[in-house]
Design a protein around this nucleic acid. Structure first.
Lengths: 216, 216
DNA sequence: TAGATTGTTAATCGATTAACAATC
DNA sequence: TAGATTGTTAATCGATTAACAATC
């Protein structure tokens, strides 16, 4: 059977934040929490929390609230953190290496199985136990290994061709740090992280605030 | 005089993307573009483009469209990219160094003036001409230099205390890569980049797609 | 049982799209 | 002038908040 109702992007974007807060509560050994208490911590409305969670099922109990551990586990499942996701990184520059070294990913099921770069100087250098390979070896690698997620941390000119090659070889999701919008078929998931756009948003808010508060 | 109407967050988040596409058109020596043609390139509605831009003024001309260079420049101004933003990085790990090395920021007015870390091994090492200093030197540095933006690329336990210290010393904006929500006064701008949350969103979409298309 | 708090429906608010008169 | 395309108002759609009956 196929899940019918489409869940809005806005809701999904909020799930990881719920997951983070519940994880913290769990570490503090909090057993249960009401939508009201959680709403105060997270600075959202209790109504939104209940509404969001009920997209996926009734995780709470009237008069009690939500069991922290249970809810944490369930959201983890919804986010697909209970399964193993083999992942490769394309581009072993600072950003690629930063992501490779990020321990938490492994905990959440994101298993780094390869790192690739064009720079021959980097060949063979190990990052978290994974030796950097040449990008030219990637097509063969993809034929021999199951890779679910590819992380693109390379310059934008190379990103597009690499995306095409990845898709051709069955990669199903791309975490894209290059400053381009990739053109991909519907069955390939793309999640963009455009850092420069994030910084520009910050810059806008800064200029805006200044204009509103500092009379010239 | 103070700008009255509040512009929605959704619109602001789209501005950098317009800016990017206009920059590309500019490089291709395209002189003018209609909202309709741009909408096809960007895969948004023409209506949205016109609506968005008209929040800031009438940049187009009936029967002609928009002058690419003019619009590019104007959006740049709106985003505050025409002014210099002195910036420091806290945390000189891979991520901090990746951001420090990102050339484009400098082009857009984001001027790196300092890098700080706790690790004494890193002290004095230069990244893009800026020597890494110890975090303990930061309060004094802030008293002697004007810093507008601080980039937080350090572990979450340290992020919160550092944010407090930065704010106390007059820093007006924080680009936060730590996995915490900072508690800051209204006049301090915080832009969060929660990478793990982005990856979880990707993971959700992957699991979701699989459930919808692969019957068990 | 009484009190607390969810799940869910209804009301409100905001954002997107459509339509078209204004105008270059 | 005729054609193109904006700027802007109105209509629609979607997301958030409020309210409350259901129920633990």
């Amino acid at each position: 059977m196929v899940e019918a109702k489409e869940i809005s992007r806005a809701v999904i974007k909020r799930l990881p934040r719920y997951y983070r807060y519940l994880g913290e509560l769990l570490e503090e050994n909090v057993e249960r929490i009401s939508s009201n208490d959680l709403s105060k911590k997270m600075k959202v409305t209790a109504s939104q929390i209940r509404q969001d969670l009920n997209n996926f099922g009734g995780f709470g109990q009237q008069g009690y609230g939500y069991n922290v551990k249970y809810l944490y586990t369930e959201i983890g499942k919804i986010l697909g953190l209970d399964t193993r996701h083999p992942m490769i990184i394309l581009g072993a520059g600072n950003l690629g290496q930063a992501l490779a070294n990020y321990v938490d990913f492994e905990k959440r099921g994101f298993k780094l199985v390869g790192i690739f770069d064009v720079n021959p100087v980097l060949e063979g250098i190990a990052v978290r136990g994974i030796e950097i390979q040449m990008l030219s070896e990637l097509p063969l690698f993809l034929k021999e290994h199951l890779v679910e997620i590819a992380v693109l941390t390379l310059p934008k000119n190379r990103a597009r061709e690499m995306a095409d090659m990845l898709i051709e070889n069955g990669v199903k999701a791309i975490w894209n740090f290059a400053h381009v919008d990739l053109d991909t078929p519907d069955d390939v998931i793309v999640e963009n992280v455009h850092l420069s756009e994030s910084l520009m948003t910050l810059s806008y808010n800064l200029s805006q605030y200044r204009q509103e508060h500092v009379e010239k």
